[in-house]
Amino acid sequence: MSASLKNKMGSAITYLILVMTTIVVLYPVFWVVTGSMNPGDSLFSTKLIPKSLSFKHYVYLFQETDYLLWYKNTLKIAFWNMIFSTFLVVTAAYAFSRFRFPGRKQGLMGMLILQMFPGFMGMIAIYILLLQLNLLDNHWGLILVYAGGSIPFGAWLVKGYFDGLPRSLEEAAKIDGANHIQIFYKIMMPLSRPMLVFIAVNNFIGPWMDFIFARLVLRSQENKTLAIGLFEMVTGRTNTEFTTFAAGAVLVAIPITILFFLFQNQMVEGLKAGANKG
């Protein structure tokens, strides 16, 4: 068998695998989108390709449920978590990367060990802590939990990126009279834009899709998030509102899709930079 034939066969197999993977990934998405526009209500009456399309489920979400309130609550939590988490992660990473202080190695090792345990292992401790701080059923209590939980993984990733930046830039800035705060904001931040975008988008997506901690902390109807509201929409109802649930799921994906298309280049660059320089 000639080398050119082998290359063609290898390319054909690669494309076949990619096509099959694409079908497997997009099939559930297509099913949910078409399901949200099925005239019926239950899972059993839903068809992959409906005879007619209806948007009544989207109208029902906004007129008959608290979906818009859930959406606002989730957007608020995700946005402020993105701000606080990114700030905490980047400042912690800069400190561990550029400063030498007692307990530095132990702190890094502690963050590394914390990543080995799933977050829900501390649910009882988090619940008791928020109860003592009077932050149960409070969006800010949930934001604090998310922000603190993002530090170990994010700080390690950003620290690896900062370690790869030349120290000569900071030394030159110090000679010109710049202090650490000026160096951080005027030199390190502009050079770290891809990594910052990656961390910010990840910290937005996490709370947007989370159910476990939101379910633990939030109790009242007016504080519920999208995950809690949509879950309760179909729980114990034998899938009688599947199409409405599908309509809500489609709308949930819109902000994440927009963020991905806007920042996909920076996210890929940031992920590659953190992996290569970590």
Rank of each mutant, 00 (worst) to 15 (best):
G229C: 07
R219F: 07
I83T: 11
K277E: 13
T34R: 01
F153L: 06
T46N: 02
G35L: 00
H180E: 14
K174I: 11
L75F: 14
I258Q: 10
M9L: 13
S168K: 05
P152L: 05
L26S: 04
R167I: 15
N7W: 00
E241Y: 05
R193M: 15
S97D: 06
F263E: 13
Y60R: 12
W140F: 15
A92W: 11
I205Q: 09
F96L: 15
W70P: 02
R167E: 10
I23V: 13
I254N: 07
A172C: 06
Q264F: 04
F55S: 12
Q266I: 00
T240P: 11
F79E: 05
I205G: 01
L133Y: 02
K47H: 02
A125K: 09
L131V: 08
A200D: 13
T240I: 12
F162M: 14
M209A: 12
G206Y: 13
A275P: 05
F120S: 12
A78Y: 02
N81Y: 01
M1C: 03
M267R: 05
N276F: 03
T91A: 06
V32K: 07
F263H: 10
G103W: 05
Y27T: 12
I199A: 11
G10A: 07
V33T: 06
N202F: 07
A125Y: 07
L131E: 08
S52P: 07
G107R: 08
K6T: 00
M123Q: 11
F242G: 09
M189L: 15
A93E: 12
I23T: 04
V158I: 15
D176H: 04
H57D: 06
P118S: 09
L216D: 08
D176N: 06
L144S: 04
L230E: 03
F55D: 07
K186E: 10
L26I: 10
N223Y: 05
L216A: 15
E241C: 00
S52A: 15
M188S: 13
G35R: 02
I128H: 06
Q115P: 01
V201L: 06
R100K: 15
N179I: 05
G110S: 10
T91E: 11
T243C: 08
F211R: 01
I175K: 07
T46E: 01
F30D: 03
I254E: 07
L129V: 14
T240D: 15
H139Y: 13
I254G: 07
F62Y: 10
I228T: 08
T91H: 12
Y58Q: 14
A273I: 04
F117W: 08
V25W: 14
G164P: 10
I17H: 03
L136T: 10
